[in-house]
Design a protein around this nucleic acid. Structure first.
Lengths: 343, 343
DNA sequence: GTGAAAGCGCTAACAG
DNA sequence: CTGTTAGCGCTTTCAC
């Protein structure tokens, strides 16, 4: 059975392609009888319009592009599931692209998706992205973009984020209340929004509890955990610190797992020597040794919300909307890794 | 800066679109001077050919579709990275689609990708797929398909798999050598290739060590771990078995983690009460409590290999090739979860 | 060496 | 109510 086109239907039914086209899309100005004939034949031959031809004609594709750092990260894969749930219901497909924390790859992915005429873009920035011209340019050309998770500061569009400040504040305060005083903060590249917001939550918690902020306890990993050596250096500096931290907050999946491995490798115990709370959606958190205390983001909902924003932008291009930044609550799950051993 | 087409270039340079087209693709019958002019202008205006127009014209897209059960599974995300590494080098893009272990979703994804004119398909079957007509049909229409991991039995094409038999044999034998005798086997839907091969490896190991095969120790989860209740029932039947197993082999990420959780929930210890070895590429295996013994698949390499096969098929459509089934070695990493406590 | 024209599949303005 | 025509961006005969 070959692929069948409108032309084939027209030929078979002795009609013109335009009549067939109109019948297929239920135009009111078509004879009901003709319409029925066309519909039936199309159905029988299993006709499917060629989306490529449509894209070319209409300069749109009924699909939205997603650009994220890594799919091998539970936060992002959950977010994608949220996106798909909304997108499919509203008739869009989702095209996934990874940037692997590289600006270069982000650029290529963006270009690719734009050329494939996606109708909009859902983006979480790579760890290397401080230049956003490629997005700005597309946006002025009329391509709607919604950022989520890692969002740019000075960029006017919808954004969906977790309440990074509150989440980190809560986690840090929890550590303080457990009795930890020398709390380190292992985090992503300094220029990312999530990094800043989490750092602020951390600092505020310390301040509110009259604990001085020790800069040497704050470590940035400019590749967000993708490069082992980078994390290793940061963690080793903490471990070998003259006044070794007794707890650490880790701002991501890779950062958390690598940090745990390293603490273990160095023969230290969690939480007795160093306690840990991770900002992570790891599915195995409660199976870890020790079970990992974690700040979870509502990844699925974030994906859904971002997609709703985006599709609204796509479908009402000229509506003068106030752009929103939606902030969703995180959820702290306390497990063994952050509990002070009772002496 | 607007999107620029060949027509714009032609107009600007007072040439015909055909001349521009030829110049751009370096046709030898174009005046070198004209060619230079066109090239320069195109470069300066940042001209990019419209891939949609090309797809329509050439009935191909220079992209390959991937259909897998879940991206939130380390095996698959690693495989995807392998695919991308090859594909990009050979000028193809990778479009990812999840089937969430559902036949219905697999069908929709397949249809979608085929309509988007992907040049080929890389597929790992959903847990529900026993009917393969949708693939067969596309293949006869000339769309190359390569299966990996979960491959169909009776289907003539390239396939890339891990040595499931040997991997499971090795894992089971390891358990036996540790002194376990009542070894359970918690696995995916019975009709999947991986299920069969792993089961055979398990049985063979038992046989070779004169351990009778106990059918009630073998549990299939027809949704491959996606539905908690299903795994729960299977594991509870094992735990409440009149002759409770002292070890269990688990055939996938979700199966493994859920099984561990349940054993823990029921107040049993790993490995003292029940030892466990998982067939999984979980990145956190060595951080689990206890550290998880695991059979790892060379996911990245499998993705690469499958992609090489596919692109060869795409680029030499009429070559009469003998289809291969490439089998890659697995790697058993022994950790605490399968070590017999010394009495 | 270059241009005119047709065609990939589809829609829509314009005629009847 | 239906057909003719043009056009989306590009390549490719076929002419000259």
């Amino acid at each position: 059975m070959e692929i069948i086109t409108i032309k084939d239907i027209a030929k078979a039914l002795n009609l013109s392609t335009s009549t067939v086209s109109r019948a297929l899309r239920g135009s009111y100005e078509i004879n009901p009888e003709t319409k029925r004939l066309v519909m039936e034949y199309a159905e029988r031959m299993n006709y499917r319009p060629n989306p490529i031809a449509l894209s070319l004609k209409e300069n749109r594709s009924r699909s939205i592009g997603v650009i994220i750092p890594e799919i091998a990260n539970n936060f992002f894969s959950q977010a994608i599931n949220g996106m798909e749930s909304i997108a499919y219901n509203r008739g869009y497909h989702v095209v996934i692209s990874q940037n692997h924390e590289s600006y270069e790859r982000e650029l290529v992915s963006t270009q690719y998706l734009a050329q494939r005429r996606v109708d909009g873009l859902l983006v979480s920035l790579s760890g290397e992205s401080n230049d956003l011209e490629h997005f700005k340019e597309l946006q002025t050309k009329g391509l709607p973009i919604v950022f989520f998770d890692r969002v740019p500061q000075d960029y006017i569009t919808h954004k969906v984020i977790a309440d990074n400040f509150a989440g980190t504040y809560e986690a840090t305060e929890h550590l303080i209340k457990q009795g930890f005083r020398r709390i380190a903060h292992l985090t992503s590249p300094s220029w990312l929004s999530i990094t800043y917001e989490r750092l602020e939550g951390y600092k505020k918690a310390l301040q509110n509890h009259d604990i001085p902020i020790e800069d040497s306890y704050i470590k940035y990993c400019s590749h967000g955990g993708m490069i082992f050596e980078e994390v290793e250096q940061a963690v080793m500096e903490l471990i070998n610190h003259p006044n070794r931290p007794d707890a650490v907050f880790t701002a991501g999946d890779r950062l958390t797992t690598t940090c745990m491995s390293l603490i273990r490798r160095e023969g230290l115990r969690i939480p007795e020597d160093i306690a840990i709370v991770g900002f992570t959606n790891l599915m195995t958190a409660d199976l870890l040794n020790p079970a990992l205390s974690a700040v979870r983001q509502p990844a699925y909902e974030m994906g859904q919300l971002a997609t709703e924003f985006l599709i609204d932008l796509i479908e009402h291009p000229k509506a003068t909307i106030r752009f929103e930044t939606k902030k969703l609550d995180t959820h702290l799950v306390i497990r063994d890794s952050s509990l002070k051993a009772t002496p």
